[in-house]
C-alpha cells in the first residue's frame, strides 16, 4: 500500500469561533472586579467552581466510565487540608492550594486500589462509602472543630491580601485561574494520546481493550488527576465560605448531586457539556431561588425532560444537529490530490 497524500485538520470553523468566544469571555471575566459588584463576584466564583467540578466529573464518569457518586470525598479533603495546613502548619492560605492537589493525588492512589476492584453499581456505591468514611474521619479531628466545624481564623484570612476588597478580587481571580487551568488540562488531556484512549474508552471499553489500550492504567491516571483537581476546587470553595464542617465539606447534594445534574443536563462525555449545564443550573437557581420546593421540583423536571428527550444533553443535541464543537478535538483527514480513492471490499 502506498501511503496517500493527506493533511490532518484539528480546528473546525465552529471550534475556531469557539476559541474566539472563549478569549472574549475570558477577558470580560478577568475584568469582572471592575464591572461587577461583590455579589456578582461571589456568584461567578461559585459558577466557576461548579463548572470545574462538573468538568472533572465529566472526565471521570463521561470519558473514563468511572461513575463516582463520591467526589465530595475530595472536595471535603481539599477543604479540610486547607484548614489543616493553614491553621496547624502555618502555610499561607493561597499556597496550600498546590500542596492540596499533590496530597489529594497521593491519597487517591490507595483509594483507587481499593475501589477499582468494584464493578458497575458497586463501584459507585464504593465511592460513596469512601466519602462517608472521609466525613466520619473529619468529624473526629477535634482541632478542626470535630463534628460541628470551625471558622478560618481572622489572621489567616487577613494575610491573603491587603484590604477586604483586594482579598475578594484575589480569591475571585484565583477561582477563575483554577477553572481555566482545569479546563486547559482537560482539553490538553483530550487532545493528547491519552485523549484518544479516553474517548475510545468512553465509546467502547471492550473495543478499547482489544485495540491495545491499557484501560486500567488510563482510568487510574484520570482518577488521580480528577481527585487532585477536585480537592483544589474544594479548598477554594471553602476559602470563600471561611467556615467548614464535615456535613458541608462532604455534602453529597452539593458536590455530587448538583455536579451530576449540571453534567448530565449539559451533555455527559462532551467537553462543552458542563459549561452549558452550569449556565442552565445557575439561571434556574437565580430565577427560582425564592420558591424553595418549586426550585427543586423544577430541577427534577428539567433533569427528567433532558434525559428523556436528549440523553446526550443539551450540548449533545446542538452538536449533533449542527456538527458544532467549541474545542478543536477532532482529527479530520483531507485527502490531497484529486484522484478517486481506490476502493475495495
Amino acid at each position: 500500500m502506498s501511503a496517500p497524500a493527506i493533511r490532518i485538520e484539528h480546528a473546525t470553523r465552529s471550534s475556531r469561533a469557539g476559541l474566539v468566544l472563549f478569549a472574549v469571555v475570558f477577558v470580560v471575566l478577568v475584568a469582572a472586579p471592575w464591572w461587577g459588584g461583590r455579589q456578582h463576584l461571589r456568584l461567578l466564583a461559585e459558577i466557576y467552581a461548579f463548572v470545574a467540578l462538573a468538568s472533572l466529573w465529566n472526565l471521570l464518569a463521561g470519558y473514563a466510565g468511572l461513575v463516582s457518586v463520591g467526589q465530595q470525598a475530595y472536595v471535603g479533603l481539599g477543604a479540610y487540608l486547607l484548614f489543616a495546613l493553614a491553621m496547624l502548619v502555618g502555610v499561607p492560605a493561597l499556597w496550600t492550594i498546590p500542596i492540596i492537589g499533590i496530597v489529594a493525588a497521593l491519597v487517591s492512589i490507595p483509594v483507587a486500589a481499593l475501589i477499582f476492584r468494584l464493578r458497575g453499581h458497586y463501584f459507585a456505591i464504593g465511592t460513596w462509602v469512601v466519602a462517608e468514611v472521609f466525613r466520619l474521619l473529619a468529624s473526629q479531628v477535634s482541632v478542626l472543630g470535630g463534628g460541628s466545624g470551625i471558622s478560618l481564623p481572622v489572621g489567616i484570612v487577613l494575610a491573603i491580601a491587603q484590604g477586604r476588597q483586594m482579598r475578594e478580587f484575589v480569591i475571585y481571580w484565583l477561582a477563575l485561574a483554577l477553572l481555566v487551568a482545569i479546563l486547559a488540562l482537560v482539553v490538553w488531556l483530550l487532545r493528547s494520546r491519552y485523549g484518544l484512549a479516553l474517548t475510545a474508552i468512553r465509546d467502547n471499553e471492550l473495543a478499547a481493550r482489544s485495540n491495545g489500550i491499557d484501560v486500567g492504567r488510563v482510568k487510574l491516571v484520570v482518577y488521580v488527576l480528577t481527585a487532585a483537581g477536585t480537592a483544589m476546587v474544594g479548598a477554594l470553595i471553602f476559602l470563600q465560605k471561611l467556615r467548614i464542617s464535615p456535613d458541608t465539606a462532604f455534602s453529597v447534594t452539593d458536590w455530587t448531586a448538583i455536579v451530576i445534574f449540571i453534567t448530565v443536563i449539559g451533555g455527559i462525555g462532551r467537553l462543552e457539556g458542563p459549561i452549558i449545564g452550569a449556565i442552565v443550573f445557575f439561571v434556574l437557581r437565580e430565577l427560582l431561588a425564592d420558591y424553595g420546593t418549586v426550585y427543586l421540583l423544577t430541577l427534577g423536571v428539567v433533569a427528567i425532560a433532558v434525559m428523556l428527550k436528549a440523553p446526550q444533553g443539551i450540548w449533545g443535541l446542538i452538536a449533533g444537529r449542527f456538527g458544532w464543537q467549541l474545542f478543536p478535538l477532532e482529527r479530520r483527514v483531507v485527502y490531497l490530490g484529486g484522484e478517486q480513492p481506490a476502493k475495495c471490499a
Partner: peptide, 13 residues
Amino acid sequence: PFTGMTVFENLVV
C-alpha cells in the same frame, strides 16, 4: 466501533 469518534480516528486509536 468507537461510535463518537470519526472513522479515521477509530483507525488512529
